[in-house]
Design a protein around this nucleic acid. Structure first.
Lengths: 202, 202
DNA sequence: GTGGTTAGATACATTCATGTACCTAACGAG
DNA sequence: CTCGTTAGGTACATGAATGTATCTAACCAC
C-alpha cells in the first residue's frame, strides 16, 4: 500500500468501516472462521485498533450484527389489504433480517458455547422488533374483517415468521416470492379466514 | 488410571466407545468445540487411535452422527388413525432425530465452511429416511379418507417436520407434547381435512 | 505551530489444537 | 508359545489465532 495520501480514519468513520468489515466476514465464513485478523485486514487496519474498541471477537461480532440491523430497518407498508402487507413484510425480512437470523442462529453456535448465552435470549434481544410489526399488520387485517381474530392463536400468529426463518435456515438463501406466497396463501390465510368467507375462491 | 487390570479394547468395541464419546462431545459443546483430544479423553484412549480410523475431526463427527442414528431408528406405528400416527412419529423425532438435526444443522456450521458441502446435501443424505416414513402415514390417512389428497402439496406434506425442526432449532429442547398437538390439530389437520368433514367439531 | 490523542504497523509471548512419529505392551490367531 | 497386530502413551513439529507491547506518524484542538 503506502499511498502518498494517507487518509487516516478516526472515530465513527473508522468504527463503521470496521463493523462493516466484520459483518462481511460473518457473512462469508460465519462466526466459526471469524477472526480479528481477517476483520482488521478487510477494514485495512490492524488488530490493536479492534482491541481498543471491543474486548474480544464475540463483542465485535455482536456489535457488527447490531450495526447492520440499524442500517436495515424493516418498514411496515400499507398496500390496502392484509395479504399484500404480509407478503411485503416477509419479502423484506427475507432480504434483510432473515439473513441476519441465519448467520446469527446458525453460525454463532460457537459463540454460545463460549458465553453460555441461551439462543432464545439473544434472539429475543436482537429480533424483538419483528413481531410487533407483524402484529400491527395482523391487527389491521382483523379490524377489516380479513381474518378471524379468534383463530389467531399465538402459534398461528407467529407461523409466517417461523416458516420464513426455517426456510432461510435450511436454504441459506433469500426466500423466493413464490414460496412466500405459498406460506401466505396456502397455509396462513386458510387457517385464519373468517367463516363467512370460507367458500370463496380467490 | 493404570488399573491393575488393563482391559484393553479392540476393534468394534473400541470403535463404538469412541463414537459414543464423540457424540457426547457434539452434544455438549457442538462441533465448534469438538476436539480430537476431548473425544480421546472421554473415550479413555488417545488421539493416534482416532486418527487410525478417521482422517480428521469432520470425518469423526459425521461417523458419530451416523452411529447414533443407527442406534435410534424411528419406528412407524399404527394407532388406528392418522392423527395418532403423526403424533407418535413427531414425538419420536422430537426425542431422537430432532436432536440430531439440531446439533447437525446448528453446530456443524463450522464444518460447512471447512468442507464446502452444502447444508442441503448433507441433511438430505442423513435425514432421507424421515420423510418416507411420514409419507407412509399420510398415504394411509388419505386411503382412509382422513385427509384430502389434493390438498397435500409438497410443502404441506413436509409442514409438520418443518415445524418440528424449527421448534427444536429455536429451543434446543425436546418439543412438549402440547406443542406437537398444536402442530397437528391447529395447523396441519385443518389444512388437509376433506371438504365433507369441514363443519365437524372433534 | 504545539501537544495530546490515536491510527497503523510490527513484533512477541501464549495458547490450543492438529496430525505424525515412535515406543511398549497387551491381545488374538495359529 | 510365538508372532503379528494394534491399543495406549508420550513427544514433537506445525500452524493459527489470541491478546499485548511498543513505536511512529497522522490528525485535531487550542
Amino acid at each position: 500500500m503506502k499511498n502518498h495520501t494517507v487518509e487516516r480514519r478516526r472515530g465513527k468513520a473508522l468504527e463503521d468501516a470496521v463493523l462493516d468489515a466484520a459483518w462481511s466476514e460473518l457473512l462469508g465464513g460465519g462466526y466459526a472462521s471469524f477472526t480479528m485478523e481477517a476483520v482488521a485486514a478487510r477494514a485495512h487496519t490492524s488488530r490493536p485498533v479492534l482491541y481498543r474498541r471491543w474486548q474480544n471477537r464475540a463483542d465485535l461480532a455482536i456489535a457488527a450484527i447490531r450495526h447492520i440491523m440499524l442500517k436495515h430497518p424493516v418498514n411496515i407498508t400499507n398496500t390496502g389489504n392484509m395479504r399484500g402487507d404480509l407478503i411485503a413484510l416477509l419479502q423484506q425480512l427475507s432480504k434483510d433480517r432473515a439473513l441476519i437470523a441465519v448467520f446469527f442462529s446458525l453460525q454463532m453456535s460457537e459463540y454460545f458455547s463460549e458465553t453460555n448465552t441461551s439462543m432464545a435470549d439473544l434472539r429475543k434481544s436482537l429480533l424483538q422488533g419483528d413481531h410487533s410489526q407483524f402484529d400491527v399488520v395482523l391487527a389491521r387485517g382483523a379490524d377489516r374483517g380479513e381474518i378471524d381474530r379468534s383463530k389467531l392463536t399465538p402459534r398461528i400468529a407467529s407461523l409466517l415468521v417461523d416458516l420464513l426463518r426455517h426456510e432461510v435456515l435450511m436454504t441459506l438463501k433469500p426466500v423466493p416470492n413464490a414460496v412466500i406466497a405459498e406460506f401466505v396463501d396456502d397455509i396462513f390465510l386458510p387457517l385464519v379466514r373468517p367463516k363467512s368467507a370460507r367458500g370463496e375462491k380467490k
